[in-house]
Amino acid sequence: MSITILNFLIGLGIAFFGFVLQTSIAGLNRKIVGRLQKRVGPRWYQEFLDIFKLLSKRATSHGWIFDFGVIMALGGIIATAMFMPLTSTFNAFGTYDNFFIFVYLLAVGMLGMAMSASGSGNPWASIGVMRALTTMLAYEVPFMIIILTIIKIAGSSLTGIQLYQQAAGNNWFLIALPLGGIVGFISLMGMLGKKPFETYIAPAEIASGPMVEYGGKQLGMLFIMHEITVFIEVSLFVHLFLGGATNIFIFILKYFLVYTLANLISNVNGRFKIDQVVTFFYKWPLILAIVQAFIAIYLGWVI
């Protein structure tokens, strides 16, 4: 297919849509958590207010790498979101929505943020980055084994994976690969940095980790980046395990349910130590992932 400027604009639209969607849903989730704790909770658009407030403040900068890292982070994440299909028929770049792009282009954004945080010269930031990378090493391997199973069955294009699940006679991979679904969701919790695995933010412990030196527009841009990252990760789960979506409303519904479930689980949990995160992921999720891959690939039992 030929790529025109229109594809880029659609991609940018998807990234913007993802930002708006995730920011609203995050605000709603703050409300839900508030109600869970018998509070009134903030307004649903509170997250927007926070972000725009940060953009309006006068920030401090620790040198060019501090700024450049933030730009690279936001740029990388916007680029990743541009490849994301919203439904099985609507995406920006056709069949180029290869799964590996999401994992590895996301890493560019992460690298940018890590670089910028370390460039601030604050030791908490470096410790936070160290923890984030270690957590990544933990959750990514079981997740990739499940992804291997899915790609082996349905190919590596996200649209293709959605269409495979939507085809008559096939189930969602959450049902077809039940163990894989569990592993996928636990890994998603790790990716989102939700609470048992929230080791790298840990405000009371390492003063919010990588974010320690940010204020004003840099922090605002990192918030935008964070929202789009969450959009990418939750959408990946929806497309990979929940059969994707045939229209935008089903997508929003599935998205909302997945994110809210992760958030609710997060709110009744404490925090792991960083080595506990690693040993946790290399115990049950990895074993479940291997068992699932073995069942699905070698025995061919896919419901």
């Binding site: 407030k53 401090t60 003063a207 919010s208 320690v212 204020g215 922090l219």
Partner: peptide, 9 residues
């Protein structure tokens, strides 16, 4: 509440 002075108002 926020963790550091850079983030707080």
């Amino acid at each position: 509440p926020m963790a550091t002075p850079r983030q707080a108002d």
